[in-house]
């Protein structure tokens, strides 16, 4: 009985996942630009800018299906465990690695969780700004998590991923998305240097992500 329930849940989650991908593609007609890496099933950590709740879905939806199956987004548990529906979407549809952002309450170390997902062979999609960027700057300072994961698994490619335009498709506080075009650009991977300091590495990762930002996105 329990097994049957799990299979049914898996099936519903797969259908919902395909539905979401289709919906995202219909609304934003997203285009993936592979500028520096190829869409091959290598283990990677995609690190992206974060301006809207939609970019989570989008950066995941534009990946080719075989890469998508392999890639797990890393997301905040305080958001994704708030309701049953969100928990289903986060845990079962996206198979997200849910981390607790609050060091006071958490029982598990987020870095440990991410490294464990990597050990399982998954790729990760992370948002190193640690929250949605509402300010005028294109990027907020990175949290240190990306550095700590990189020290544990320096072999995994870190791919800068710029999501353009989503902020306008679904601004904070809005529910109905606007059908505008959007692009996701994947840049050349970076790795943690031999004796690179935390500050240097974070600055370099941030610069690498900014360098991937397409020209059009800068004028608007």
């Amino acid at each position: 009985m329990e097994r049957l329930r799990r299979i049914a849940l898996r099936f519903v989650a797969d259908v919902a996942g395909h539905g979401l991908v289709l919906f995202a593609r219909l609304i934003t007609a997203p285009r993936a630009i592979w500028a520096g890496v190829d869409p091959v099933p290598r283990q990677r950590i995609y690190f992206a800018n974060h301006t809207s709740n939609g970019d989570f879905v989008l950066a995941w939806a534009v990946l080719p299906p075989n890469l998508r199956r392999q890639t797990r987004p890393v997301a905040a548990s305080d958001y994704w465990l708030k309701s049953k529906l969100r928990a289903f979407a986060g845990r079962d549809v996206f198979r997200a690695v849910l981390i607790d952002r609050n060091p006071e309450t958490r029982s598990e170390d987020p870095v440990e969780q991410m490294v464990r997902a990597l050990e399982d062979g998954s790729s990760l999609l992370i948002f190193p700004e640690g929250g949605r960027n509402m300010g005028p700057d294109p990027l907020m300072p990175f949290k240190t998590g990306i550095y700590h994961v990189a020290t544990k698994r320096p072999d995994v490619d870190l791919v800068p991923t710029w999501i353009a335009n989503l902020n306008e498709i679904l601004p904070k506080g809005e529910v109905v998305p606007l059908p505008l075009l959007c692009t996701v650009t994947y840049g050349a991977p970076i790795h943690l240097g031999e004796d690179e300091t935390k500050e240097d590495f974070l600055a370099r990762a941030q610069a690498a992500l900014l360098a991937v930002r397409p020209e059009e996105d800068r004028v608007a």
Partner: peptide, 26 residues
């Protein structure tokens, strides 16, 4: 028209405050 409007409005000036007027357009 829908496809063309989408291409056009992707490039025009807009802020969060225009969300509803743009939705009405579409």
């Amino acid at each position: 028209s829908f496809a063309a409007l989408r291409e056009f409005l992707t490039l025009t000036a807009k802020t969060r405050a225009d969300h509803w007027s743009l939705l009405i357009s579409f």
